[in-house]
């Protein structure tokens, strides 16, 4: 039943995130004839429909919304129970704190995965409605990238929500750390390690997408995939350890 408890606590945010991501995919796809000219005019690298979809969805604003959703999905937990006065009930359940944290993290990973599934399938179908073609094989490789990159973002706010008692404070801290991490990844000394999670999710890490055609080159970023997954798991592990020892 811990899954169900975690689901009840996060379902509004999750369903709203689903609606937002689906809405943005459909908007960019169905309004393509109106939006494409402006974007192609301002962006030299957008020269065809696939590049337009990558610019707006897989590597653009929709990916940003997914990351924002992940930041919000990571919030909650025992600190929120405490501020709402329901902590006693949660801690009185015959389960360890570790289980409480891990079930919430597991559900979060599942939610990020479901959110990542939306764009490839929605865009492939909706593109046909506007007489365009976006092969499903183009969108599918983004699913692991979005899931793992989203999980890292989720884990960051998850950890902040465990440490910071104020919910909005945790969100602000998570966002600031996220922005700092992105900025640090751009530093010349760190740039060679390709730690920019947004670039990773967009397929812009080296040798994944051809920079000229924005098509897959056939090489898949397995090392960053496992690296980011490990980073997310470490953050969840730290959050678990902190929660176990926390004086609530």
């Amino acid at each position: 039943m811990l899954w169900y408890k975690a689901w009840r606590e996060s379902r509004v945010r999750f369903l709203l995130s689903m609606a937002l991501i689906a809405g943005m995919c459909l908007m960019y796809c169905l309004l393509e004839s109106r939006l494409y000219p402006g974007i192609a005019h301002e962006t030299p690298r957008v020269r065809n429909y696939i590049q337009y979809i990558h610019w707006t969805v897989f590597g653009g604003a929709t990916r940003g919304i997914l990351q924002l959703s992940c930041l919000l999905l990571g919030l909650g937990g025992l600190q929120r129970d405490r501020s709402q006065g329901t902590l006693g009930y949660t801690l009185a359940l015959p389960v360890s704190r570790t289980m409480l944290v891990l079930k919430r993290a597991g559900l979060g990973l599942g939610q990020v995965f479901v959110l990542s599934l939306l764009p490839p399938f929605l865009l492939t179908g909706a593109s046909l409605l506007v007489h365009q073609q976006l092969p499903l094989s183009y969108g599918l490789p983004f699913i692991p990238l979005w899931t793992i990159g989203g999980f890292v973002t989720f884990a960051l706010s998850f950890l902040c929500s465990v440490v910071i008692p104020s919910e909005y404070g945790a969100l602000a801290l998570a966002y600031v750390i996220y922005i700092f991490a992105l900025a640090a990844a751009r530093h010349p000394r760190l740039a060679e390690y390709h730690l920019h999670v947004a670039d990773f999710m967009s397929g812009n890490a080296p040798h994944q997408l051809d920079p000229h055609t924005t098509l897959w080159t056939g090489m898949y970023p397995l090392t960053p995939l496992f690296g980011f997954m490990a980073a997310g798991l470490v953050m969840v592990a730290v959050a678990t350890m902190v929660t176990r020892r926390q004086d609530l």
Partner: peptide, 14 residues
């Protein structure tokens, strides 16, 4: 609903 305003504001502004 918690965070609903934030989750609605960001895409509205986008």
């Amino acid at each position: 609903g918690e965070y609903t305003a934030i989750l609605a504001a960001i895409p509205s502004l986008m």
